[in-house]
Design a protein around this nucleic acid. Structure first.
Length: 455
DNA sequence: TTCCATT
């Protein structure tokens, strides 16, 4: 039926309204088709805009590739059709580079010229927005890993291009997994579940899993808007990542309620709506403390005692953190919070304090040495989330994210004040350099007001 | 400053 050395092709950039029967005529002209499958979402059945194609003859695949790949654009598509061996056919990894800090003016050709000396280039594309303006970065794929590595060695940081804010970045491009994680963060923040206690809990992961399955079912029944369907698909991707062990949490299968269920809400405030923990089985990524204290003592002290030096987050080597990426985020965040194994956040200490001091609405500063400055906060972090982030380290007097007056957008920095310097120091130790996504928090003592005016 | 999708 098919030759032993047949090649499975990946077909990309096909309109989502084209099914196998529509695609067949396009490809049949190059030979007899053994198998043609449009790739669909596992849960929603949504057409993903690409397909796999195997010809009976290897020769047909080669002919189709040279005749079609990047050669024509199907109706409704912005980019030319892709016809190339599927990833499963050979290795495609570790030879593609991400190039950052390009000037906005550099073209594909400019970039190609820069990288040509290091080897044979398979692809070279400057990333552009919808309006065609360069995003200041590019992908360059070499034929071999060694060539790509050579380019990194020579070019990375070698110079600063005109119009770029820092020196040239040349590194291996994100893997599929890393992309997935990035997307996950985006979705999480869009859904408003970015707050510290989300994503990190076993209970929440199980909850997410339940949501995913429900959403998928409901989406299939066409109850949901396209936006919600997309969300469901992305949630499913999150679950897939989860299942791949990136988030080291056991997943308990959920049987969705059948029949006349109301479409669940992906709520803006999911935390209070969380169901009881589901099948977490006491799993915790935090190692037992070495000091002989019962683990539960460590795990349940948030907001009650200042954090100890043995704080798992504080103990992490910053270099480890640099490579741990999102995994670090998911694993160490709850540790920093002392929240692992506890499904719901504690009563914030600030609430009680505000209660005691109802009149004082001012931003309160603690004494000198008690106030910390936090920079590189996630854009979507609010006062409350920052408060929660720092509660484990002591009594928080105030937590304020600075907001642009015109746009109401966070300026991504803020201040937290404690009632004693030790808490501030503990917070700095634990959270300075803490990685969230691709950024790291900068946490340091707030400068005294007159710091810049020595006299 | 991370893309267009890889059962």
């Amino acid at each position: 039926m098919k030759e032993a050395d047949a090649i499975k092709l990946f077909i990309g950039q096909i309109p989502r309204n084209l099914e196998e029967k529509d695609l067949k005529p396009i490809f049949e002209q190059f030979g007899k088709i053994y198998e043609l499958t449009v790739i669909k979402d596992k849960y929603t059945g949504m057409h993903k805009g690409c397909a796999f194609l195997t010809y009976c003859a290897r020769e047909s695949a080669l002919k189709a590739q040279s005749a079609l790949h990047e050669q024509k654009t199907l109706p409704g598509m912005n980019r030319p059709i892709q016809v190339k061996p599927a990833d499963s056919e050979g290795r495609g990894e570790d030879r593609k580079l991400f190039v950052g800090m390009l000037g906005k003016q550099q073209s594909d050709e400019d970039v190609r010229k820069m990288f040509e000396p290091f080897g044979s280039i398979d692809e070279c594309t400057v990333l552009r927005g919808p309006d065609g303006t360069s995003k200041g970065c590019a992908f360059v794929k070499f034929q071999s890993h060694a060539e790509a590595q050579a380019a990194i060695n020579t070019l990375h940081g070698s110079r600063t291009l005109p119009g770029a804010s820092s020196s040239l970045v040349v590194k291996f491009a994100d893997t599929e997994k890393e992309r997935g994680l990035r997307r996950m963060q985006q979705v999480a923040s869009q859904l408003g579940i970015f707050s510290p206690m989300t994503l990190n809990f076993g209970a929440y992961n199980a909850y997410t899993q339940a949501l995913v399955q429900q959403q998928a079912l409901v989406a299939q029944s066409a109850y949901l808007s396209p936006v919600a369907t997309v969300a469901a698909v992305q949630m499913q991707q999150m679950a897939a990542l989860n299942a791949n062990g990136i988030i080291a949490t056991p997943i308990t299968p959920i049987t969705p309620s059948s029949g006349t269920n109301t479409p669940p809400t992906i709520a803006a405030t999911p935390v209070p709506a969380l169901p009881p923990p589901i099948g977490v089985n006491g799993y915790s990524p935090v190692p037992a403390p070495a000091n002989g204290q019962p683990a539960s003592e460590t795990l349940y002290t948030n907001g009650v005692h200042p954090y100890q030096a043995q704080s798992p987050a504080a103990a992490l080597d910053p270099l480890q953190q640099a490579y741990a990426g999102m995994q670090h985020y998911t694993a160490a965040y709850p540790a920093a919070y002392g929240l692992v194994g506890q499904p719901f956040p504690q009563q914030p200490a600030l609430v009680a304090q505000q209660h005691q001091q109802p009149q004082q609405q001012q931003q309160r500063e603690g004494p000198e040495g008690c106030n910390i400055f936090i920079y590189h906060l996630p854009q979507e972090f609010t006062d409350s989330e920052m408060l929660q982030m720092f509660l484990p380290f002591g009594n928080v007097i105030s937590a304020k994210v600075f907001v642009d007056r015109a746009t109401n957008q966070s300026k991504c920095f803020g201040f937290v004040s404690f009632d004693n310097p030790a808490s501030a120091q503990t917070a700095i130790q634990a959270m300075n350099g803490f990685q969230i996504g691709m950024k790291r928090l900068k946490v340091q003592l707030k400068r005294p007001k007159d710091a810049n005016r020595p006299y």
